[in-house]
Amino acid sequence: MNYHWNWGIFLQQVQSGDETYLDWLISGLGWTVSVALAAWVIALVLGSLIGTLRTVPNRWLVLLATTHVELFRNVPLLVQLLLWFFVVPEFLPRDLSLWVKQDMPAKEFVTAVICLGLFTSARVAEQVRAGIQSLSRGQKMAGLAIGFTLPQTYRYVILPMAFRIIIPPLTSEFMNIIKNSSVAFAIGVLELTFQARQMQEDSEQGIETYLAVTLLYFIVAFAANRGMALIERRTRVPGYIGGAK
């Protein structure tokens, strides 16, 4: 193996400006976290709604929610991203289409967030549905029996328990969304993977670059994992063991 190591590379200036490579990576990390968090908000809100709709006693709502899940689950994320970026603007009304293509601020960022949010919402929806269905039917009946309407039964009885049950799989989805945000490089979001490629080409110190970036991903994933574990501890119900019944 013939490789010239240079660990000082991170503090050196980039070829084309007065930033250091470390500056690139830190700004990349910022974009990665921003994309992931913003998309997570969409995924959580929309996924909860869709997952809930899949369990209600109305065929049309169930069909609508199922269609959403199948659509966003069965096309690769990268292909979805390219569709959102290149194809969707063509479908918009003329003025809006022009605005999106020419003037929309942070176009790449917004596109990546919407795409990743919708993609993950389908997966969150499946977890929410599984959580709801793991509860006994009696819980729903008990809610209805004291006079709650169906929405109230979901709000006060079913969803609070369902969400507690699915915190572990939601934790993996949260970590997935951080990892999946790397796909945003394909439309030019300056996130960590984009910066890694750029720094590797610019500095020709590929191994140091990738090691540093891998370490950064590791740290973010670890922090996300600890954060979710904290939420899990905080919401734990005393005396309650396991999921079903």
Binding site: M1, K179, S182, A196, R197, G206, Y210, T214, Y217
Partner: peptide, 18 residues
């Protein structure tokens, strides 16, 4: 714990070096 994309880039970079 690392994105597949990073793994793809890693292997593409490292295997030829080895």
């Amino acid at each position: 714990s690392i994105p597949l994309l990073m793994v793809i880039l890693w292997f593409f970079l490292v295997i030829p070096i080895f």
